[in-house]
Design a protein around this nucleic acid. Structure first.
Length: 487
RNA sequence: GGUCUCGUGGCCGAGUGGCUAGGCAGAGGUCUGCAAAACCUCGUACGGCGGUUCGAAUCCGUCCGAGACCUCCA
């Protein structure tokens, strides 16, 4: 069932689901655009990273050897096309009165913490833009050499018209240059540019810039898009398998990355472009400028007024896994609560499965269920379907427990193994089991034994007192047919 | 204005030309000392209007509504 050749993914480039064929069999190179660390990443940012973490996990699960590169943008980029605004990191630095890299360091520390809290696997490497200025300059030089860029007054711009004669600008986002021209009716104040769609590869330094680098064109800053081209090329080569990022990066960021790669190395960087959809708040994209965002920490601390109570990171992650990565999703107290309860059922089934009665034969087809897990995920990482299939398995486990279905030892082992692999390794739910403290266990045995005696004597007052007392300590007691369990 | 996406039952959220998605919530039942859990049954959903078709929520057109991108953005 674990067949690498059955994987299909939706490629933004073609607008279709395509069979995944790596450049080198068994190996995958994946680049994902990471955060710009001028502030703490919000929940919407996290959703993208959680989704690509899931994708990374599934690729690993299929046995691919994956090199996963996710950059950190720590060089400031001018915030609008006019070029007269400050870069976000520089702005934050001035505001907080510390160095730009202190800003980045500060927020990167938080970002790293969040990755642990939300159970993200660390990428193979997290390269930084400032650590690759030289590589960026070299690519710019190549583009100039190829006559797809020009220098004006200490800045370098990508020449979209020249590029369009050999390549198709707009291939990813479906944009046409002449249409773009009509659309951009204002804001053409960028006099240095020869053509409105040209974009900066290198910007001459402003006197107030806090980060400045030397280049063949004088002191300045790299353009926003060039860092990804430089780092993906360095770590994955000019051509690699998967490039991912948020939908909002499709244009212009990813479009321009393609132009830069074609303009320098004559090849598109990635075979497959994956785009994760946005997280909404009340139907609108979460964004800093709208102010409708909340932080990943606020939700687990319960310090945002948007939700009725605190929800842990696992619940949030599970809720996100219940939506497809290409759909946009909203979060509400109701949906979080539903996820919390649903996940609880999953975990309880895992516990329950440890003590199921075994039979001579199984009354259902385990291999079919397990196959359905793979079918779901192979279809463009359809986690909602996967979860639905897993709930089917949960139901079966409960039915076995009720004696209404039976299972053999071998089938149970297969089912549990695969179930856990998908729950913990693929969906990334933390496997915090075996937490059943060795010292607590005998104590509980004793307490429950006492309660059982009371129940035997129909001393309900005592038995309920024990149950209520344990409830206060967060221990739930459930009386089943074959004894009492606690958690 | 241009390009594009979406509109599914109380909520979240998949999918599909005809066959029950799933979770949560709700109703009834089984079990239980009670409770919890579990299991069973139930609501007969696909924005409006046309069209294609034996048959459409699924394809086409149109209208309404929401959103994304076109400018920094995961």
């Amino acid at each position: 069932m674990k067949n690498q050749k059955d994987l299909f993914l939706y490629n933004t480039l073609s607008g279709k689901k395509e069979k995944m064929t790596p450049l080198v069999e068994g190996k995958i190179g994946m680049y994902v655009c990471g955060p710009t660390l001028y502030s703490e990443p919000h929940m919407g940012n996290m959703r993208t990273f959680i989704n690509f973490d899931m994708i990374y996990r599934y690729l690993l699960h299929l046995g691919f050897s994956v090199k996963y590169v996710r950059n950190i943008t720590d060089a400031g980029h001018i915030t609008n096309s006019l070029g007269n605004a400050e870069d976000a990191i520089g702005k934050a630095a001035k505001l907080e009165q510390i160095q730009p890299l202190e800003i980045v360091y500060k927020y990167n520390t938080k970002f790293q913490e969040l990755q642990k809290i939300y159970n993200l696997l660390p990428p193979s490497i997290e390269p930084t833009a400032t650590g690759h200025i030289q590589e960026q300059i070299e690519i710019i030089e190549k583009i100039i050499e190829n006559k797809f860029a020009y220098e004006v007054n200490g800045s370098v711009y990508f020449d979209v018209r020249a590029y369009s004669e050999k390549f198709q600008y707009g291939i990813l986002s479906g944009r046409k240059i002449d249409e773009l021209a009509e659309e951009t009716r204002e804001l053409n104040a960028q006099e240095e540019k020869r053509f409105f769609a040209d974009f900066a590869l290198w910007k001459k330094a402003n006197p107030e810039d806090m980060q400045i680098w030397r280049s063949p064109w004088g002191n300045g800053n790299p353009g926003w898009h060039i860092e990804c081209t430089a780092m993906s090329t360095k770590y994955l080569g000019a051509k690699f398998d998967i490039h991912g990022g948020g939908m909002d990066l499709k244009f212009p960021h990813h479009e321009d990355e393609i132009a830069q790669s074609c303009g320098s190395y004559g090849t598109q960087p990635a075979n497959y472009w994956l785009h994760a959809n946005m997280l909404n708040v009340n139907g609108q994209k979460m964004s800093k400028s709208l102010g409708n965002y909340f932080l990943p920490k606020e939700i687990i601390e319960g310090s945002t007024t948007i939700f009725d109570k605190a929800y842990d990171a696992t619940t949030v992650r599970f809720l996100m896994m219940q939506a497809h990565y290409r759909s946009n999703m909203d979060m509400s107290s109701e949906s979080l609560l539903a996820a919390e309860k649903g996940l609880q059922r999953m975990f309880e089934a895992v516990e329950l499965s440890k003590n199921l009665a075994l039979s001579e034969k199984s009354t259902f087809d385990v291999s079919e269920i397990v196959a359905s897990f793979y079918t779901a995920m192979n279809d463009d990482f359809n986690t909602p379907i996967l979860i639905a299939k897993m709930f089917d398995a949960v139901r079966l486990i409960n039915l076995i427990n009720d004696g209404k279905e039976t299972i053999t030892k071998a089938d149970l082992e297969t089912l549990i193994l695969e179930f856990k692999l998908f729950l913990f390794d693929v969906l990334g739910m933390p496997a915090n089991e075996s937490k059943s403290d060795n010292r607590l266990s005998p104590v509980m045995d004793l307490v429950l034994d006492l309660r059982q005696n009371a129940r035997g004597n129909k001393d309900w007052t005592t038995s309920d007192k024990i149950r209520d007392g344990l409830a206060v300590a967060g221990i739930v007691v459930k009386d089943g047919k074959d004894g009492t369990i606690w958690q």
